[in-house]
Structure formats: structure tokens, C-alpha cells
Design a protein around this nucleic acid. Structure first.
Lengths: 190, 190
DNA sequence: TGTACATCAGTGAACGCGCGTTCACTGATGTAC
DNA sequence: TGTACATCAGTGAACGCGCGTTCACTGATGTAC
């Protein structure tokens, strides 16, 4: 049953894709290798032909999730001039849409406290993603000095990540939406 | 082997205490009932004399963790006049000490993304804790209008929670500390 | 270009292990007389 | 106050289940001639 190289690469990509979604939706620990494999249309035994361990899958899933977020930041920044780029990034990230779509959203918000306990490889990947986001935001935040822009971008991202995390904890949808709105207002005023 | 009412209450308190620390250190899912019971000096079988389920333990552990944070906020606020109270709260929360002490720190930062998937009871408890923190901060943030103070407090807390979460993901201790410092600087300037 | 063979993606059973929960039992506590 | 008994905190074995990982096997792919 050997598969062609193209098929193999496609299968591997699909496993990581499914994992990335499930880790963000249900958490890393709560998502099993078997569950990921069967959702990818395979049996669990073949997993170790593609990955050394579940930890490696976590690292790669984290990477694809973050790459998608970074790309969405880049898109927003390229389609909107100057500070408006930042405003659009915030509007997309700090939204009820993002809140209600954990499986397709930012891994830092969706599994932040689990990433803090992940292995070094995963945390380096997550850090790289965070730094990429900071860099894009810093360029669009409207500060002359690069240091001030960087610092402001770090602050904005911490608030954004904290806001989405909290909005998912708060049960009442209106109270939750209100937290998001407050963070948006404050970031727009930066 | 029945125990006196005082002993029973003390045992129950101890179980919750151990659970609160372990959930924050290792995560909710990664912490087993047996592990909590044995660290509390008991066998796992007796757990269900005290709690209906692990979920109930999660809710209570979350509550004691948050109560401790709220009390530390109150202490700081009562010992320092005006805006200085807010400054001390931020200095304590957004610190490498807090970063390196997840098991004794804020549940919202230590298990935020797991709380987002917890049952309604736990999330209500977490929301209450967040609101308590917001209220204390709002009083000390130095705004005349209560609405503006509340809004500013929500923003500050989102940034604080996001900052501590991120600081635990970042591997390099200096880079991690630098994120915390940036958030402190920005909040002091509020 | 055609054939023989090594490679290896995927299968499905099995490994040891820990999970949350249940239960029969023990024996000290607390209560009713 | 002293005695008889019901209560129930805690024990330890067992429940079914899913975890991450391993492995012998299958058979199509890719390669060497």
C-alpha cells in the first residue's frame, strides 16, 4: 500500500491541518492522535510514518496555525494604508467572529496556557509567530521611532491575546462582546 | 474510619488547595484526580465523598485561585494610595516572579485557554473573579467617570493576562522579561 | 522499455499505562435513648 | 452520663475506556538493471 510521494506529502499536510484545528478547538491534551488520524481519513497506526511523536505534531500544527494568522495580518496591512492597516488587524482579531472560531483562529489565544507547557521546539515556533505579528503591527502603528513602535505593538498584541482568551471564558455573550469592544476602542485610540 | 466534621472540612480544603496548585502548574487535563488525592495524603477512592465530579473540583480550585489573586489586589490597593495602588498591582502581576510561579499565580493566566473550554459553572466563577479584579483596578486607575475607569481597567487586565501568558511561552528569559517590562511601562503611563 | 526487487505508506492488533468513576468494606464519629 | 447503633470518611480493588507508541504485515511505488 505504499503511496506516491505526492500523495504522501498531501496526507502529511492533511494530518497537520486536522491537528491544528482540533488542538485549537479542544485543546492539545484533549486531542488524541487516533482522533486526528481518523478525521484525516487514516488509521492511527500510520501516524509514526509521518511524525516522530505527538509533540512534533503539536509543533507543526502550532506553526501552520500561526502562519495563517501572520498571513491574515499581512493581507490586512497590504490592503489598508498606514494606521488603517492596524485598525483592520485589530477589528479582525478582537472580534466575536474570532472568539467563536477558535479552531480557525490564533493559536496563542486558543491554546496559550497549553503552549506555555509545551516543549521548547513548540514554544520557539510560537515565539517566532508572536514576533512576526509584532513586526507587522509595529510598522502600521504610526510611531516614528522603531523602538516605540515595537513596544507599542507588543503591548497591543498582549491586550489582543488576553482579550480573546477572556472573551471565550465569559459565558454571557453580551458581556463577552463588551470586553472585545472595549479592547478595540482602546487600541484604536493608540 | 469516619472522621470528625472538622477533619472532614480540613481534608476537603486541602484537596482543593492541592488541585488549585496542580491545575495551574500542569494544566487541568494533565492533572489527575489520583495525583491530587495522593498529594493531599489520601487514596483516590475517597474523592467522591467530597466532590460530585472532577469538574466540580475544577470549579472550586478555580475559585480559590482567583480569590487569592483578588485578595492580593485588595491588599495592594489598601496599602498604597490612589494610582500608586494600581501601579503596585501591575508590578506584582506583570512580573517574572508571577511568570515563574504559575502554580501560585492567577488562574486566568495559568490556565486561560483551558478555562475557555471548562463547564459553565467554572467559567462563571472565572468571570466573577475577572470582574472583581476589574472593579478594584477601576477604583485605582485615576479616572473621574466610572465608565471610563471600568473600560480602562478591562483593557489593563486583558493586557496583563495576555502578557503573563506570552511571557511563559517565550523560551528566552530575557526576551520574556522584556515583554513583561514593556507591558508594565505602558500600563504605568495610563 | 521491460523486469525484478527494495522501499515504505498505511493497516489493524497489541503494548503498558493512567484516566474518571464505582463499590464493598472498615471502623471511628456522632446521635438517640 | 453510659450504651447501642446509624452514619459516613477513607481504603483499595475493580470498572470500561482512551491514551501514545510499537510492530508484523500488505501491496503499490519507485528504482536498478
Amino acid at each position: 500500500m505504499k503511496k506516491s510521494k505526492i500523495e504522501t506529502a498531501e496526507t502529511r499536510r492533511r494530518i497537520v491541518e486536522v491537528a491544528a484545528r482540533n488542538f485549537r478547538r479542544n485543546g492539545i491534551h484533549a486531542t488524541g492522535v487516533s482522533e486526528v488520524m481518523s478525521e484525516a481519513g487514516l488509521t492511527h497506526g500510520g501516524f509514526y510514518r509521518h511524525f516522530e511523536s505527538k509533540d512534533q505534531l503539536v509543533a507543526e500544527a502550532c506553526e501552520v496555525g500561526l502562519t495563517a494568522v501572520v498571513e491574515s495580518f499581512e493581507d490586512a496591512a497590504s490592503q489598508h494604508a498606514g494606521k488603517e492597516g492596524f485598525r483592520v488587524i485589530v477589528e479582525n482579531y478582537v472580534s466575536t467572529t474570532h472568539r467563536d472560531n477558535a479552531e480557525g483562529g490564533c493559536p496563542l489565544a486558543g491554546m496559550g496556557s497549553e503552549l506555555a507547557r509545551a516543549d521548547e521546539m513548540t514554544r520557539e515556533t510560537a515565539t517566532q509567530g508572536f514576533n512576526d505579528m509584532v513586526e507587522i503591527v509595529a510598522k502600521r502603528i504610526g510611531r516614528r521611532q522603531p523602538d516605540a513602535a515595537h513596544s507599542e505593538a507588543v503591548f497591543a498584541l498582549a491586550a489582543m491575546i488576553g482579550a480573546v482568551t477572556m472573551s471565550r471564558i465569559i459565558v454571557d455573550p453580551d458581556a463577552s462582546a463588551s470586553v472585545l469592544q472595549i479592547i478595540r476602542q482602546h487600541l484604536d485610540a493608540i
